[in-house]
Amino acid sequence: MKVEVGKFVNTHGIKGEIRVLSDSDFTDERFQVGQQIIVKHKNEEQSFTIASHRLHKNFHLLTFEGIHNINDIEYLKGSKLFQEEDNKSIELEENEFYYADIIGCTVYVNDEQLGKVTEVMETGANDVWVVQGDKEYLIPYIEDVVKKVQIENKSIYIEPMEGLLD
Score class of each variant (00 low, 15 high):
K2A: 01
K2D: 01
V3L: 08
V3K: 14
V9R: 08
V9T: 12
N10G: 14
T11L: 15
I14H: 09
K15N: 10
R19F: 04
R19C: 10
R19A: 15
S22G: 06
S22E: 10
D25E: 14
F26S: 11
F26R: 08
T27G: 04
T27C: 08
F31K: 06
Q32K: 15
G34P: 05
I37A: 00
I38Q: 03
V39K: 00
V39L: 12
K40T: 02
K42I: 08
E44V: 04
E45A: 02
S47M: 07
T49K: 11
T49Q: 04
H53F: 14
R54L: 10
R54H: 13
L61V: 13
T63A: 03
F64I: 05
F64Q: 02
E65F: 01
E65D: 07
N69K: 09
N69L: 07
N71M: 09
I73N: 04
L76N: 02
L76F: 12
K80E: 00
K80F: 08
L81D: 00
L81G: 00
E84F: 01
E85V: 04
E85Y: 03
N87Q: 07
K88G: 15
I90G: 03
E91H: 12
N95A: 09
Y98K: 04
Y98T: 05
D101V: 00
D101K: 05
I102Q: 05
I102K: 03
I103W: 03
I103F: 07
I103V: 15
G104E: 00
C105A: 05
C105V: 00
V107T: 10
N110S: 12
E112S: 13
E112F: 10
L114M: 07
V117Q: 08
T118A: 04
E119Q: 14
A125N: 14
A125D: 15
V128T: 14
V128G: 06
V130D: 01
V131H: 11
V131R: 12
G133A: 08
D134S: 10
K135R: 15
E136G: 04
L138K: 15
I142P: 05
E143C: 01
D144Q: 12
V146L: 05
S155H: 15
Y157H: 13
G163F: 11
L165A: 08
L165M: 11
D166Q: 12
D166R: 13
D166V: 07
